[in-house]
Nucleic acid binder design. Structure first.
Lengths: 156, 156
DNA sequence: GTGTCTGCAAAGTCTTTGCACCATA
DNA sequence: TATGGTGCAAAGACTTTGCAGACAC
């Protein structure tokens, strides 16, 4: 797993080949699963979905592909404090930019789109300032709120 | 590990006892280690520090205490994408409110305090709106930027 | 044909749990 | 003395690695 990872021309096969990678059945299947959902899937979720259609694909490949896609900037990797990572296509998130409200009890995640303009504005300025001041190349950010959802507040 | 966890009167022993918990040697030692540092320590880091003074304290107790302190709202638990959690006293973070710039390559973390007023302002409004709209009790938030630090950009 | 990718099994890492003993309030 | 806390060892969960065979280009 060496290679020059980074943004490339559009179209996934092109993106892959442009980086010296190959487009294979498992990779295509994994990307499709991620594209078709609005949920935040774990590696195991993805594995099970892919497995329905291509039972020969292994969990290891799913992990390796997810790492590759994350490094290529095609997907985001999230931590919702569950002890496992969850993934979402950058594409989908950009189309409907949102952040997350995470219930620390039942682990439910709500996507919210409020304040987004304001947030983007704030983030852009922050990224610009910070990257200059610390000579940091900022690729990504995360904003998340944690708390108790309506159901879990009641049964507290 | 049952109990009514939540904010209480000031002073750690009081906070503990007020919640029905006990103040013990390991707990005191762990809190002291966290208070004395400005770094973000992992469970193992804390264990090793405590171990210097009280060698009988086990890693299990460190984990259990960290969970307790997190639930009580005395410390924050962070994920810097390393595969392990890191902890920081709420007290310290409040005294010098900051967020984090995380290098995805060398895992270095820079605390930054720029934009904090603006950020707090934004967060307050967001929390108010979101908690109303989704009937969510927001306890906590996270803002982090990910990228490459000055050293890692060069050797990319 | 060459270098990448894959599946399987095994190992690794961090974290949690079970249980008997100990200590705080 | 009655809970709650602790240490040890073992288990658990997620993720990574080694390796030989398979496949994309």
């Amino acid at each position: 797993m060496v290679g020059r990872r980074g943004p490339m021309s559009s179209g996934w096969p092109g993106k892959f080949r442009g980086c010296g990678y190959r487009m294979t059945v498992p990779r295509q299947a994994i990307i499709e699963v991620l594209q078709k959902t609005k949920k935040h899937l774990s590696a195991e979720d993805i594995y099970m979905e892919v497995h329905k259609i291509f039972p020969q694909v292994g969990l290891t490949t799913v992990y390796r592909t997810l790492e590759l896609l994350t490094d290529m900037g095609m997907i985001y990797k999230f931590d919702f404090r569950e002890g496992r990572a969850r993934y979402e296509m950058v594409e989908g998130l950009k189309k409907e930019h949102h952040h997350h409200l995470v219930c620390t009890k039942c682990k439910r995640v709500i996507n919210y789109t409020e304040f987004i303009d304001e947030e983007i504005d704030f983030l852009k300025r922050a990224e610009k300032e910070l990257s200059k001041k610390y000579n940091f190349e900022i690729n990504d950010h995360i904003i998340q709120f944690y708390g108790l959802c309506d159901k879990c507040r009641v049964s507290k």
